[in-house]
Design a binder for these strands. Structure first.
Lengths: 131, 131
DNA sequence: ACGAATGATACTATTATGGTATCATTATCT
DNA sequence: AGATAATGATACCATAATAGTATCATTCGT
């Protein structure tokens, strides 16, 4: 099981690079640096732009700058953007109501795990990864 | 993101039912009780049998009994059997060595999360879910 | 006006998940 | 012994998620 998928990972790397570079960064710069497939990276950056993580500038000399301060960019947010909500305790039979064999003590235990994971992920910001 | 997929979930439910029933349980019993698609459940039980979690008996009057004591059946084991090793911190660019933008403080943080999750999952046994 | 950049969007490929289907084997009951 | 009721082995299929590609539109600087 993976916790972090590629798009999230790429997004994180891209954002980190943009932070370090201070100035405007183009997709070409990022591709050169990160060796990520260009069209895929473009798609990812467009999402980051829409979410305000990054700001885009069109036209010649354009590219991307940071949209938020690095301390305000949480790994958890990136994860949610690209992978949807983190729900570790989803009961697969939920729609049909749990049948008699109620294994539901499980649910509370999974909830605890989930809370811990979320707390930890919240503590990871781009700023904390850069320094 | 799901932590537990259906096969693991079904396996857990099946095992719990077998524990509660004390005696031999056939696939038909389980299907009746758990409303799980029969062929899928059969496949799952065959895996559980091979792994020793469950013991199978062929022929008329056959079925399944427990292969281990309920305190010895860990959710973590079921998870590993059906979903492979739990690796939260897999760096997607690992093969090619992380490029210069080393985001690797991330790795240690993810490792901590992973350890915690594994520890928690180890503490969940079938016995603890039944009572 | 041209070229260099991103925006929008639709399509494709690969893999993981969630199953089905079929035939072989084995044990029991009559 | 033979029918029947169970699991074993295995190959196949469907759907969804992941990981990308491709193309045309728009915008900005020179």
């Amino acid at each position: 099981m993976k916790l972090i998928t590629r798009d999230t990972d790429y997004a994180l790397r891209a954002v980190c690079f943009i932070v370090k570079n201070k100035k405007m960064v183009s997709v070409s710069d990022l591709v050169r640096e990160l060796k990520i497939p260009r069209p895929f990276l473009r798609k990812i950056l467009q999402v980051l732009n829409k979410k305000g993580i990054v700001r885009s500038f069109k036209g010649r000399g354009g590219g991307f700058t940071l949209g938020l301060r690095p301390e305000k960019i949480y790994l958890l947010d990136l994860l949610r953007i690209f992978q949807g909500p983190l729900k570790l305790n989803e009961c697969t039979l939920n729609k049909k109501k749990c049948p008699k064999i109620s294994v539901c003590p499980l649910s509370s235990k999974l909830n605890n795990i989930e809370k811990h994971v979320i707390k930890e992920l919240k503590s990871i910001t781009v700023a904390s990864l850069i320094k």
